[in-house]
């Protein structure tokens, strides 16, 4: 009997739980077979390379300080511009009010 027919007869007579368990076993061994030989050495090499390429603590701290300084500068510039625009608008409004009140007092 050909192997494929024998396999299909086996799968027909097997109960669903057994069939599922068999499928899980195949799935796990299929996954395991995807690792090429020398996998542990590749992992260790890559891990060492990444550790060497990783920025130092001082570098990370300097980057954080620079980022915070830039953000602070941007907020300060934005705040200065907004408040000077608001001051100009307020001054113009007050001048209008002052001249209106001058006109009123002259009229009286």
């Amino acid at each position: 009997m050909p192997a494929s027919s024998s396999a299909s007869i086996t799968s027909l007579t097997m109960n669903p739980e057994n069939q599922e368990a068999k499928a899980w076993a195949i799935l796990r061994s299929h996954g395991a077979a995807q690792l090429a030989p020398g996998f542990p050495d590749r992992v260790l090499r890559e891990s060492l390379a990444r550790a060497a390429a990783a920025p130092s603590l001082f570098g990370q701290f300097a980057l954080s300080v620079a980022t915070a300084a830039l953000c602070f500068l941007a907020v300060a510039i934005f705040d200065a511009r907004t408040s000077s625009a608001a001051t100009e608008t307020n001054q113009a409004d007050w001048q209008q009010i002052a001249s209106a009140s001058d006109n009123l007092s002259q009229a009286q």
Binding site: R28, S29, H30, G31, A32, Q34, L35, F39
Partner: peptide
């Protein structure tokens, strides 16, 4: 642990080419 982890990853992703 490599074989068990690889089997677990394959069950999670369903893709042979991303296991390694």
């Amino acid at each position: 642990y490599q074989r068990r982890i690889a089997g677990f990853i394959y069950a999670m992703t369903g893709r042979s080419d991303s296991v390694e």
